[in-house]
């Protein structure tokens, strides 16, 4: 036991020394990075999401509101190509009924064909159809939007992040923090502000506090009161503010990017219970089988 302790003390001392050296070396580089501000925008503020943590679930009402924001605001420029209308009725999602999905799909025009005459034709959408793209091709999308095609949003909540840095990225593995994507989307949507004095704004650019480099091509998309959140009783179901719209659409995009999240966490919990019980059982079986060896090491 004594030998062990000495070993660990020395190891800890060495670890401390090395960490200090590493930190000393890392600091100047870090200062240069954040001081120059060439790499990124400000760190997005953390949001308390319903879907965070091991028992996190999507809030159906929030996903429905987020979908409304997407449909009325984002969809004119941004596609959602990996999603089908039917997904809106899938378990663990916004929870629309099949009838609602059918009616919604029918509002879209979908290109199909060729028919018996060899011609392409347009028909009303069906639940199995994917969301139609807002532009016929990437070039058309780019030319209509100042030279850069608006990105598809299907995976946006997993395709964007910001640097957590040491030591936070280590803590994240323990706290299961995995919501940088939606935090970032919310931050960008709420981060439009006047450029600071002396900031060189290129043509067609907009200043955003959180967008890397601060120059974003997308004009400010949301305004207070823009999307109607009134329920059947005529009262808004949630605040009709930029902040709330941004939260709702970020949550919706998290679901769009990870539609099986709730199933994953539910199965994960069952797997954990199973594995913990199994680990206990095999541990005690092992202990029991090994016990005679410890009492009489010479008889095996």
């Amino acid at each position: 036991m004594k030998g062990h302790r000495i070993m660990w003390n020395k190891t800890l001392a060495a670890a401390g020394l090395l960490t200090a050296v590493a930190a000393a070396l890392a600091l100047p580089a870090r200062a240069a990075e954040s001081g120059g501000d060439s790499h990124g925008g400000a760190v997005p503020p953390p949001i308390s999401w319903s879907f965070a943590g091991p028992f996190g679930t999507f809030d159906q009402q929030q996903l429905q509101r987020g979908f409304k924001v997407y449909r009325e605001v984002c969809a004119s420029c941004h596609g959602l190509k990996f999603l089908a209308f039917r997904n809106l009725a899938d378990p663990g999602g916004p929870g629309f009924s099949e009838g609602q999905v059918k009616a919604l799909a029918a509002e879209y025009k979908v290109k199909d064909g060729p028919n018996d005459q060899g011609e392409m034709f347009e028909r009303p959408g069906r639940a199995a159809d994917r969301f139609p793209e807002p532009f016929p091709n990437e070039q058309a999308a780019a030319v209509a939007n100042g030279g850069k095609a608006p990105p598809d949003l299907s995976l946006m909540a997993k395709a964007r992040t910001y640097e957590r840095g040491f030591p936070w990225f280590i803590f994240d593995a323990f706290t299961q923090f995995a919501e940088t994507g939606p935090n970032y989307i919310h931050a960008v949507l709420t981060g439009y502000e006047a450029a600071p004095a002396g900031f060189q704004m290129p043509d067609g650019g907009n200043y955003n506090r959180y967008f890397p480099g601060h120059v974003i091509a997308m004009p400010k998309p949301l305004n207070d009161g823009q999307v109607d959140y009134k329920g059947p009783d005529g009262k808004p179901q949630a605040p009709e503010t930029i902040d709330q719209y941004s939260k709702d659409v970020s949550a919706f995009l998290m679901w769009a990017a990870e539609p099986k999240m709730m199933a994953r966490k539910e199965i994960g919990f069952k797997a954990f219970i199973f594995l913990i019980v199994l680990a206990g059982l095999v541990y005690f079986v092992k202990k029991k089988v090994w016990a005679p060896l410890h009492d009489h090491p010479e008889t095996a």
């Binding site: 994953r264 199965i267 090994w290």
Partner: peptide, 23 residues
């Protein structure tokens, strides 16, 4: 038996990432 204990404990560690922080 000892390998089984090690393997199951390792699976717990695996499951933590797989089910809760897969990315």
């Amino acid at each position: 038996l000892k390998d089984t204990v090690g393997t199951v404990v390792f699976l717990l560690f695996f499951a933590w990432f797989l089910f809760y922080i897969p990315n």
